[in-house]
Design a protein around this nucleic acid. Structure first.
Lengths: 152, 152
DNA sequence: CAAAAGTCTACTTCTACTATAGACTTTATA
DNA sequence: TATAAAGTCTATAGTAGAAGTAGACTTTTG
């Protein structure tokens, strides 16, 4: 049940973009290099990831000198599920319970397949979290946690 | 977030063994071939899977003529989580939130890493389902569903 | 002893993930 | 208007792990 590096880096980058954007309550532009350095990621690899996010409407970019990437919508309007699906595909553990990319999975009777039932629950549990958590939620949560830790 | 074929076949096989065992309220022995045929799986591949489950204490076996595999404990005492972990490893999407196989994941501050927090939630949601669902639960659920469908 | 079963290990094949490379386009500014 | 700084796009290399195959071995029954 692993999150790929692609997905991990993409999510990290989006959170990194969301943090200053939330603070300023305005889109915040960052360059690939900047993000890559901050997160300790290969810039070339991150480039592909950000490009995919852009081509799927989650990021906007500005080319040329002084360019960079910024969130296409406010952090409160982008869910982790949207990001995840662009980078890692369907959330479902088996295709036969996928809402976004259903495919039969070959059990004799799908309707009464016990494994399918349970995996459906798992899919829903994951999707419930990823589709209701926005970048703004993540940033907020990080913030409260930092405050709490700095007090001690 | 995919379930591997290994995991899928193993879970299917365990459910197949649990079904008659629950009906008879006693361990039920089946041969590799038998299960492989029923589930439409390569017998040689399934062999490795069942062996792993045996070596991890979830199955017992009998060698020689008239031998086969049977559940090491009652279906109500074997959870899907136990099976999953033997075949697919940790449940956690990233190692740094794994309860069973923790490893740092390289974010600058793990304690306040937003991604880690969310992935922790995801891990818990998955583990909650897999670790509380037993083979007996699955068989029961299949049963009620079949009854419901046969009525119409 | 022969046949039927599981045991074990090695190996092959294939796929997908991770990463790198490099040529191209756009834009700001000196 | 030239140059450098940025993103764009596509191809490809490398690798690891998943999926599956093979075959020799052991145990048990009759």
């Amino acid at each position: 049940m692993r999150l790929s590096k692609r997905g991990e880096y993409g999510l990290r980058a989006m959170i990194a973009l969301a943090e200053p954007a939330e603070k300023a309550n305005a889109p915040h532009m960052m360059q690939i290099k900047e993000i890559a350095q901050r997160e300790g990621i290969s810039a070339k690899f991150l480039e592909q990831i950000l490009l995919a996010l852009k081509n799927n409407g989650l990021l906007h970019s500005k080319m040329g000198v002084g360019g960079g990437y910024y969130l296409a919508r406010s952090a409160g309007e982008i869910t982790l599920g949207q990001i995840f699906r662009v980078l890692d595909g369907p959330v479902a553990p088996v295709k036969c319970v996928s809402q976004m990319a259903y495919e039969p999975c070959g059990c004799p009777d799908e309707e009464t397949c016990g494994l399918r039932l349970v995996m459906g629950d798992v899919r829903n549990a994951i999707a419930d979290i990823l589709d209701t958590t926005t970048l703004a939620d993540v940033v907020k949560r990080q913030g409260t946690l930092r405050k709490k830790l700095s007090v001690r």
